[in-house]
């Protein structure tokens, strides 16, 4: 299957870093997912073929890692941490706020396909709690108001892209 040049560059560079081919699997899946939105059957077959693995082995690996998914989700994946440090400083309120604001629950996706919501475990922002990640961007010291702005920013970004 056709993957981006950037993916291919990364993949072919990485495969030389290890004595076994399958070592590239986890980071490659994540990079592929970044491009495709989720890990499609086609991609799984492609990786299996490239790395001399079975589809089953690839699926077993995918299902182990919480960031990897075989289900489509929104353009922006809002991941709110509610683990202990965030919980103490209002992480759950941020999550509830997002649920209300986006009208979706844990692992839900908005109807326009823009946002998905996920309650996640510690993302390493404990001293700046509560925190959330939208895709890979960290947003810290959140309040419901700050969260509104964050979501608004992403919406604006999409509109700008669409208008260009």
């Amino acid at each position: 299957m056709k993957l981006s040049d950037q993916f291919e560059q990364r993949f072919h560079a990485m495969i030389n870093h290890y004595p076994t081919k399958r070592s590239v699997l986890v980071p490659s899946l994540l990079y592929a997912q970044d491009e495709l939105g989720y890990l499609t059957d086609e991609l799984i077959a492609e990786m299996a073929q490239r790395l001399d693995l079975t589809d089953l082995e690839i699926r077993n690996v995918i299902s182990y890692y919480s960031m990897l998914t075989t289900q489509p989700r929104g353009k922006f994946n809002v991941q709110v941490c509610t683990n202990i440090a965030c919980m103490l400083r209002g992480g759950e309120e941020i999550l509830d706020h997002c649920k209300r604001k986006l009208g979706i629950g844990h692992k839900g996706t908005t109807r326009d396909g823009l946002f998905s919501l996920e309650e996640v475990e510690c993302i390493g922002a404990c001293s700046w709690a509560p925190a959330a990640q939208v895709n890979y961007d960290f947003h810290e010291n959140l309040t419901p108001e700050r969260m509104n702005e964050v979501l608004q920013d992403y919406r604006r970004k999409v509109h700008q892209q669409e208008n260009c």
Binding site: T54, L56, E57, R59, N60, S63, Y64
Partner: peptide
């Protein structure tokens, strides 16, 4: 090699 383990934790399942 027709069987594997899917998911993790308590959701682990033979697949």
């Amino acid at each position: 090699w027709a069987l594997g383990i899917q998911n993790r934790g308590v959701a682990s399942v033979i697949a």
